[in-house]
Design a binder for these strands. Structure first.
Lengths: 251, 251
DNA sequence: GTGGCAGCGTATGAAACCGTACAGAGCGGG
DNA sequence: CCCGCTCTGTACGGTTTCATACGCTGCCAC
């Protein structure tokens, strides 16, 4: 029925897909499927078979650890820089974690079994995705650190920065309620922290909406809690414009 | 000089090494080197080239995230069930994290380059170690959750349990000071939390020494914060006694 | 056996955050 | 236009943890 539009790697906006060699991209291309990713969509259900792996483009997903009785904490954010369902890359087809769409948009997906086959066929594909897993590990560690050591304002700043990195523009559609879930604090605490940032002109807050005004000072506010995973990403994942392997001794 | 003693897989006490197929073990054997792991030894230095990867046997290592200015938090514990230097398995030869020996003992090590070669030679070896990486990710996530959501007593219980899993017997050589560093809380807080556990007869505390008396109630105290990574490990890593692949559809 | 030190017990005031409750404010639908 | 719902602002008492300080104790070295 529908005209098959040839998928071009250069038109993609997911950085991992961009970073593939053209051979590796050719391997995945037949199985990549563009999908709408509406807010709240469950991409990975805990302890269920993972059917698809997602490469977000404009959407952002959250990875949540849930320990039964309603206690849940966000452990990672994945947007256009990464892939949702990383355990498939590690040869594991279910995980105790949950992933859902936090900011809606679009992306591509691929059947887990197709990806597994492609990983077996191409060492370079597997290598790239494994390096991303490393970065994701560092991000989760930074979350653990932030949760343990930082005051709320700092954690909020970190979270806003991570979101800002994954969208175009300076507008984030977020409610206090949602942030309180992500940061695992109570909602009025978020309200206060937002007021502090707004009071000094770093952000502007409107109903269900936050605008980043001064990113530089937001980074200052986040302090150490922001930056390590981001630097690791830049070190290990080729930039779109650059040659396929920007670092001689990567890793 | 020294008589070369043939290394037998059955005599090893690291569960990953035990779980290798005999072919995979043969691949690693020539490069495995037994080492003493004294307390405080730095196994992995942050942002430095990783020279060796370690398989602890009686020793336990801590993985620490350090964000410059003295803020540091433990993000994972590795003992006889795992491997220190997992980023090598992901094809990355340096990491922002630090690993050091927390409880001294012995273990084996292998040059990072040798391991990398072996990983390229054997898909099943790579697969096993990647599944362990998944488990480690889950452990780090559980740490993030614990740091964010749990009161100190719960976190302490979790930490003691993880240590207990990795030693023989019920004796842990630990100081309050050390625990305060691992849990990223102040030292008197640890003292109080230990008194609570001791007061109800779950542990017995002596100078620089904690004895687990009632593990079952310790698990109750830890609640949800303990158990998820441990279950994931049992699900994905073959047990020593069992056949090589205990689960038909692993992963 | 005694000096010294690492390890532990305890106190105190301050700060961050919690759980809960409730009222005002923006916004869309009938 | 106004109802109703979501979102946000604010308040209150209570708990946990913080930072810091200081004294006691077990243990090793000399």
């Amino acid at each position: 029925m529908a005209a098959v539009v040839e998928l071009k790697q250069s038109s993609l906006r997911n950085r991992l897909l961009q970073a593939l060699t053209s051979d590796d991209f050719a391997l995945l291309k037949p199985h990549l499927e563009q999908v709408a990713l509406p807010k709240g969509m469950l991409l990975i259900e805990p302890n269920q078979l993972i059917k698809h792996v997602y490469f977000p483009e404009t959407a952002i997903a959250s990875v949540i650890a849930t320990n039964s009785e309603s206690r849940q904490v966000e452990i990672a954010i994945v947007g256009r820089e990464g892939v949702v369902g990383p355990s498939v890359i590690l040869g594991v087809n279910r995980t105790p974690h949950q992933s859902f769409i936090q900011m809606e948009g679009t992306g591509y997906r691929i059947a887990a079994s197709c990806l597994t086959q492609a990983l077996e066929a191409s060492r370079s594909l597997h290598g790239l995705l494994l390096r991303y897993i490393h970065v994701l590990t560092v991000q989760t560690a930074a979350t653990a650190m932030s949760n343990g050591d930082s005051v709320l304002g700092e954690r909020l700043a970190r979270w806003l920065l991570m979101c800002h990195d994954r969208v175009d523009g300076d507008e984030l559609a977020l409610t206090h309620e949602f942030l309180s879930l992500m940061l695992a604090v109570r909602r009025p605490g978020v309200t206060e922290a937002i007021h502090l940032l707004e009071g000094v002109g770093i952000i502007r807050a409107r109903r269900a909406h936050i605008t980043i005004i001064d990113r530089e000072r937001l980074e200052e506010t986040a302090g150490d809690s922001y930056g390590v995973p981001e630097a690791e990403y830049e070190r290990l994942i080729p930039k779109p414009g650059a040659s396929t392997m920007p670092l001689s001794g990567q890793g």
